[in-house]
Amino acid sequence: MPEFRIGQRKYRTKGEATKAVRAVLRGYPVGSRVDDPEHHRLLLDLLDMHPYAEDKIGPGVEAFAIAPPQRGPYSGFQVIRTDGTRIDFSYQDCLKPRTYRQQVLNVMGDEVRQTKSDYFEARRAADTLISDLSGQPLASTDIAVSYFQGPAFNAIAEEFAESLGGWETIELTSSAEQGLGRFVDRDLAERWFIHHQERAVFGLLSQQENRQRPRA
């Protein structure tokens, strides 16, 4: 059977990779942070494989924690972001095969992640941490930088890919098969950054408001 990768780690099968992830999950009590550096790096590479990695990562990952069960008896993983917000993610979603489009979308999100961080910091500096949907004040641990006021991230990315002739024209570094990767062509990465910057309209929502918004 073909090998399975999480970042640079090679596993004989997907089952072995799943077993390694579950060992981390079961090695910590619910509510605790994942404090082993190797476990942290494994979860970073795992999260990069999530179909909505860009949304899950947000402004950046500070740490991981073990979240209480949402359904059934099993605990899960939680991302603690650099802005203090938290969000759960399913390791099973991360281990599902991804299309090349999903890989490119995740890389695109990572290439422009700093713009979302800058927007959040600007709003915090201006003391305007309120929901742009409801007008309610937002707790520092319950904030999502959202595209809800303009075109969705996927729509912006789709337009860029179509202008090049399709997703397959965007070449990723080899680590894209092993984790998140980067654009091979750094001039193209800069063109994507400018394209995104010209079209992205950010706003602040609560995490629940952001989860409920339609996806394109």
Rank of each mutant, 00 (worst) to 15 (best):
M1Y: 09
P2I: 04
P2L: 07
F4S: 00
R5M: 05
I6Q: 02
G7K: 14
G15H: 09
G15L: 05
K19H: 15
V21G: 02
R22P: 02
V24M: 03
L25Q: 01
Y28Q: 01
P29E: 12
P29R: 13
P29M: 03
R33A: 13
D35W: 08
P37V: 09
L44Y: 06
D45Q: 10
L46E: 02
L46K: 05
L47Y: 05
M49D: 01
Y52L: 09
Y52R: 14
Y52F: 15
E54A: 07
E54R: 10
D55A: 15
D55C: 10
K56L: 15
I57T: 03
I57Y: 01
V61P: 02
V61E: 02
E62W: 07
E62N: 05
E62A: 09
F64T: 00
F64P: 02
F64Q: 03
P68I: 11
P69M: 06
G72A: 08
G76H: 04
R81L: 04
T82V: 14
T82L: 14
D83G: 02
D83P: 01
G84Q: 09
G84M: 11
T85H: 12
S90N: 12
S90P: 04
Q92S: 14
C94F: 10
C94M: 10
C94T: 10
K96A: 15
P97V: 08
R98N: 03
Y100I: 09
R101A: 06
Q102A: 14
Q102Y: 07
Q103N: 04
Q103F: 01
Q103C: 03
V104D: 02
V104P: 03
L105S: 05
N106Q: 02
V112P: 00
R113M: 08
K116I: 03
K116R: 15
K116T: 07
S117D: 06
Y119F: 11
Y119S: 08
Y119W: 11
E121G: 14
R123H: 10
R124C: 02
A126S: 15
L129I: 07
I130P: 00
S131V: 01
G135A: 11
G135L: 13
G135E: 04
Q136I: 12
P137N: 03
P137W: 08
P137A: 10
S140H: 15
T141L: 10
I143M: 04
Y147E: 02
F148C: 04
G150M: 03
P151Q: 14
F153C: 00
F153A: 02
I156L: 04
I156Y: 07
A157F: 01
E158K: 07
E159M: 07
E159Q: 12
E159H: 10
F160H: 06
E162C: 01
S163F: 03
T169E: 13
E171N: 09
E171D: 07
T173W: 15
S175L: 14
A176G: 13
L180V: 00
F183G: 00
F183L: 01
V184A: 09
A189L: 11
E190M: 14
V201R: 12
L204G: 04
L205M: 12
S206N: 09
R211A: 09
Q212S: 14
R213T: 11
P214W: 00
P214D: 07
